[in-house]
Every structure is written in structure tokens, then in C-alpha cells.
């Protein structure tokens, strides 16, 4: 350390905090920015500040928004009787890209993990239940990750929601499209067998 002038050192340290960026990449980015024109630098720093200033969580589904409600919650054409529950906001954008789903979302911002001390009170579980009491929801789709934590979260929420007379479903698990059966790992194969369907 102490190799670079303090101002550059500071920038490198900040960049290296970002996910996927190691020391080397941080240095490369920093030197790229040193040579960048003033307009680019202003643009980048303004974009960062603007983002932090305007982006907040949607008070209904806890996705991100730069307005009052997020685009999905605002949209009158969306089917308000279905809610898809995801762990992270990023998952919403993945599902939206399919153009298949027309319901609403709910972002938990995590999954239950006793080892890490994350319980239902640490994710947006209570908010989901309250929401179901207010709106006329007929189905809740659990789209949490197929990890032990995601499964446990889905099952826990399912237990709470089913008695409310709402159908709770879980995304299917199985062989990815375009993959080979031969190279599918065994756990996925077992799940695929369990979830097999008759050909109509």
C-alpha cells in the first residue's frame, strides 16, 4: 500500500468493494477513470448520486422504484389476484424478461437461514401476510431459490398462507431446457422424476 497518490488509493479501495471486482480490476478501472474526460466523470458521479437519491423500495412489493410505486404495482393491466414471491429484486427482472407472467410480485430480500440468524422477522414476510389480508389474492407463487434456505422459506410461508384460503404453488424443479439428461446432477434428476408430467 501507499504505492499510489492518496486520492487514487481511495478510489481503488472504493471500487474493490464492488461485487466481482478484485484488486487488479479495481486498479485497472481507476486508471481508466484517470484518463477519462471530465464529462464522463461528472456523468458517472451524478448517475450514482441521482440513483441513491431517487431509488427506493416500493412500499407494496418491496421491489425497487424511482417513483411512489414500482412499475408493476402501478400497471392497471396486471392481474392483482396473483403474487409471485422472490428472494431478490433481480429475480423479478429475470421473470419479467419471459413476458409470461402478468401478476404482481413480492420481494422478501433474503431467505430464512437459522445459521446466519436470519428469521422471518428479518425478511419481508410479515409485509406479505398483511398484503394478502388487504387485497383479493387467489394464488401465491413461491419462486424462492431451490436451495435449502429457499425451500424452508417457501414451506414456512406456505403454512401461513394456505389457511387463509389462498392457493400456494411452488415453481417446478428439473432439467434445464437444452441440457443433457446424461450430464444432469443426481439431485436435479431425482426432482425432475418427482415432478414428471403426463404427455397430453
Amino acid at each position: 500500500m501507499g504505492l499510489y497518490p492518496k486520492a487514487i488509493e481511495r478510489l481503488i479501495n472504493e471500487l474493490a468493494k464492488l461485487p466481482g471486482i478484485g484488486d487488479k480490476t479495481a486498479q485497472r478501472l481507476a486508471f481508466h477513470l484517470i484518463d477519462a474526460p471530465q464529462t464522463d466523470i461528472t456523468g458517472l458521479s451524478e448517475a450514482l448520486l441521482d440513483m441513491k437519491d431517487k431509488v427506493r423500495l416500493c412500499p407494496r412489493c418491496f421491489s425497487i422504484t424511482d417513483g411512489d410505486l414500482c412499475d408493476v404495482c402501478k400497471d392497471p393491466k396486471r392481474d392483482k389476484s396473483v403474487i409471485c414471491v422472490v428472494e431478490n429484486t433481480r429475480d423479478i427482472f429475470a421473470i419479467e424478461r419471459t413476458h409470461e407472467y402478468n401478476g404482481l410480485y413480492h420481494v422478501l430480500h433474503g431467505a430464512i437461514s437459522p445459521i446466519e440468524g436470519i428469521g422471518p422477522q428479518d425478511i419481508k414476510a410479515r409485509e406479505l401476510i398483511l398484503r394478502l389480508g388487504e387485497d383479493d389474492v387467489k394464488e401465491v407463487i413461491m419462486a424462492t431459490n431451490p436451495t435449502p434456505e429457499g425451500e424452508a422459506t417457501a414451506m414456512y410461508l406456505g403454512q401461513l398462507i394456505t389457511p387463509m384460503g389462498i392457493t400456494v404453488t411452488r415453481l417446478a424443479k428439473g432439467i434445464p431446457i437444452g441440457a443433457d439428461v446424461e450430464y444432469t446432477d443426481e439431485i436435479t434428476l431425482i426432482k425432475a422424476f418427482e415432478g414428471r408430467k403426463p404427455i397430453k
Binding site: 430464512i112 437459522p114 428469521g119 422471518p120 435449502p148 425451500e151 424452508a152 422459506t153 417457501a154 414451506m155 414456512y156 403454512q159 401461513l160
Partner: peptide, 12 residues
């Protein structure tokens, strides 16, 4: 009060 959480882990 966290007892109902067990079911999700039991199942797995």
C-alpha cells in the same frame, strides 16, 4: 414462537 419454522426443515 419460532417453532412453526421447523416444518420447512423437517420436510427437507
Amino acid at each position: 414462537s419460532m417453532r412453526p419454522l421447523l416444518a420447512g426443515w423437517n420436510e427437507q
